[in-house]
Amino acid sequence: MTDAISVSGLVKTFGRTRALDGLDLTVRSGEVHGFLGPNGAGKSTTIRILLGLLRADAGTARLLGGDPWRDVTTLHRRLAYVPGDVVLWPNLTGGEVIDLLGRLRGGHDPGRKAELLERFELDPKKKGRAYSKGNRQKVALVAAFASDVELLILDEPTSGLDPLMEEVFQRCVEEERERGRTVLLSSHILSEVEALCDRVSIIRKGRTVETGTLSELRHLTRTSITAELASPPDGLMSLPGVHDPDVQGTRVKLEVDTDKLDEVLKHLTQAGVRSLTSTPPTLEELFLRHYEDEAPAGMPR
């Protein structure tokens, strides 16, 4: 199976700003791929290059086996896009916009549209200017999910949705995966990415800093452990992979590199374990680890 999206060494500059600085991204066919990064990291710029709206300065981008800049018509028939900031025409109703976008893409399923309108609780009779941000996003989401395409490109699609609608959205993405479709999901919402995505790419300042499945990425991080021991531990500090140990008598709190977990646990059981809590790293910690070194640059310590 070919990759749905393969991008390598992508560079895009706007004046003096280097928005993309050698970005790599591979999305396999049939997977839900999380595209993570702080504001201004280059997520939307990458997506706009993939949609043929921007032309890359260097690097290669392949989309569904074609060139995103040259093969616009053939590629766009096979994909649907939800922008982060959905702006509607003030005098067209939501229903009209959904139908229009579907027809311009090459047809959509009216039955599926009706079902989605109900699930997202969207009133299609309102004029574009009357919708709130969340409802404008629902219009674009219904238009995208109702279309029969191979690839969905979603750019922060849920920033205006309430938790109930967020759940509807997640179920829709699950269904798309079951139907064998590929989804590129750019997001800030880590719980959403954790719940939905098979693989994740984390980008920062226009470069990819991490990519892989969630368990692969977790492997690179630390697990936090809290234990109540029978006797005070001994030599724990000197074990490789142990960080921030906090030993108070028989109570131990520490962080451990996930690949050194086995040795540390053996050491703890020697001292006799009364109780043990182990917390796997969250995506959030993973995410923060990549960005926290940005913050101190300008901050007083």
Binding site: R48, L51, G52, L53, V72, T73, H76, R77, L79, A80, Y81, P83, D85, V86, V87, L88, W89, L101, L104, R105, G106, A140, I153
Partner: peptide, 14 residues
């Protein structure tokens, strides 16, 4: 500039 063009160009429309 109002970003109404992007969704249209993401369809088959050239």
């Amino acid at each position: 500039t109002a970003q109404r063009l992007e969704p249209l160009l993401a369809t088959r429309v050239r």
